[in-house]
Amino acid sequence: MTELTQDASELTIKEFQEGIHEGKIEGYRCTNCGHQQIDIMEFCPVCHSAKLEKVEFSHFGSVVTYTIQLVAPEQFMNEVPYAWAIIQLDDGPKITGWIPFISRPEDLPIGQRVVFKKSYLPGIVFEKGKTGD
């Protein structure tokens, strides 16, 4: 029987969320095929290997798509308007995050450079990057 124990290579939801508040973006890399993903997972969706390692990703990325939330879930009610975005991190997988104080589409072109910000606000906070980020 395969024994199920948590080892250092595994990421729990709690660790991921605590990591975000400590300024770390953690996820998985498949040691067999190199696929990277931010998720809670046991097998690689590309090669189905179980050999996954926990890795830390870059804080820099670009906006793939987004929405500006004017009606938000409970935890975010007091933050509207803000942008919720899907972000391609420079060295790997996509991640979601929210960017405070965005109220108009003109303020956030697709491809906008963004940077992850350590924060005690709920969720994963990004802000618009400066030139050169």
Binding site: Q17, D39, T67, Q69, V71, P73, W84, A85, T96
Partner: peptide, 18 residues
């Protein structure tokens, strides 16, 4: 964990698709 709790409402997810 990664979407709703990170600020996406259900319309927000389809807003991103749109």
């Amino acid at each position: 964990v990664f979407e709703g709790a990170c600020g996406a409402s259900f319309p927000g997810l389809y807003g991103a698709i749109a």
